[in-house]
């Protein structure tokens, strides 16, 4: 186990470097010069008469975009290790302040979505497996295939449409935080979480179903049944316990995927999280913000995936030796 942890961690470091280099390089091949962008008032290229060359050079020096690219990368990376993500080009405030405000919102949304998904998916998958090839099983399978095909934004729009139609409800403009008003916050976050978690629900239900079906074929289930245990106990104590292993880890990986998928839901439901910050930053060509958000999400997903790999290895010793 120790060797496995060491190997897994060592592989993590080059991947982390790779990720930061990719993001940094990507946003440096951008056609627009951020200094020109800021001076021309956000229109891109713009008229050259609006500003002088001295102003341009001065701003470039201030932003640091006049230095060699390797120096820029090293500075950026070094500062990031001290949790300093630079200053937003657009708002001219430290990026870390923005992240501190937006990150918990996205995290809450993803956690809520995962909880909702698992609560629905596991019973659905189990029942579908027990009653294999029944009408209920077919319906569940259709829902799960459909859930993967359903783009979350369309589901979100449908939810808003139904809510508006039935309750006259619109996503609130003002966001209330969990700490100020827990009830109000949960009311506000419930539907975004539902829209976000739906496809996860579908996927987890599918995994649960096939894991259950696989376990049902095992010898120990036959043993449990033949020694006369009630079917209920066979299912809950013997089958479910073993089938849940892949379900737990997949829910973990899916949680990571959700962190990246909140972008669209946040935009539709006007939730002030990192996804919305990312989209607005792209329109502002605000490199430090874009980089910080992407690095933060990606590193989080990386850490989460590594954690899940380790958890899986710990729960399932067969993996460690492969």
């Amino acid at each position: 186990m120790r060797a496995y942890i060491a190997k897994r961690t060592l592989l993590f470091i080059p991947t982390l470097f790779m990720v930061t280099i990719v993001i940094f390089a990507l946003l440096r091949v951008v056609p627009g010069d951020p200094a020109v962008m800021l001076l021309s008032g956000g229109t891109g290229g713009g008229d050259e008469e609006d500003y002088s060359q001295e102003q341009l050079a001065e701003l470039r020096a201030k932003l640091g975009t006049d230095r060699p690219i390797v120096v820029q990368y090293a500075t950026w990376f070094g500062n990031m290790l001290r949790l300093d993500f630079g200053t937003s080009y657009f708002y001219e405030t430290p990026v870390s302040e923005d992240l501190k405000a937006k990150f918990p919102v996205t995290l809450e949304l993803a956690i809520l979505a995962t909880i909702l998904a698992v609560i629905v998916a596991v019973p659905l998958g189990v029942i579908s497996a027990i009653k294999q090839d029944s009408l209920g099983d077919y319906v569940t399978r259709l829902i799960t295939i459909g859930g993967v095909a359903m783009p979350s934004f369309w589901l979100a729009i449908l939810i808003i449409f139904l809510l508006v139609l039935i309750f006259g409800w619109m996503p609130p403009i003002v966001y209330v935080s969990l700490w100020d008003d827990p009830g109000g916050n949960l009311r506000q976050m419930f539907f975004p979480a539902l829209a976000l978690g739906f496809s996860n629900m579908a996927f987890i239900a599918r995994v649960t179903r096939s894991a259950m079906l696989e376990v049902f074929r095992e010898d120990y289930i036959r043993t449990a049944r033949s020694k006369g245990l009630a079917e209920k106990i066979v299912i809950s104590r013997h089958a479910l316990k073993n089938a849940l292993l892949p379900v737990v880890t997949i829910s973990g990986y899916e949680f990571g995927r959700l962190l990246g998928g909140t972008v669209i839901i946040e935009v539709i439901f006007m939730v002030p999280g990192m996804g919305r910050l990312l989209v607005t930053s792209i329109f502002h060509r605000d490199f430090p913000e874009i980089q910080a958000v992407i690095v933060l999400i990606t590193v989080l997903v990386l850490v989460l995936n590594m954690g899940m790999d380790l958890l899986y290895a710990w729960l399932n010793p067969r993996i460690r030796y492969s």
């Binding site: 592989l11 080059p14 991947t15 470097f17 790779m18 990720v19 280099i21 990719v22 993001i23 990507l26 946003l27 091949v29 951008v30 056609p31 990571g256 995927r257 962190l259 990246g260 998928g261 972008v263 669209i264 990312l278 989209v279 792209i282 874009i290 992407i294 999400i297 990606t298 997903v301 990386l302 995936n305």
Partner: peptide, 24 residues
């Protein structure tokens, strides 16, 4: 393979958004 690890670490939508941010 390490390079592919790095690419696969990105959530796919986030990577696509990042590339679109760069390309326009």
């Amino acid at each position: 393979q390490r390079f592919i690890d790095g690419m696969m670490a990105f959530p796919s939508l986030i990577l696509a958004i990042a590339i679109m941010a760069a390309l326009g």
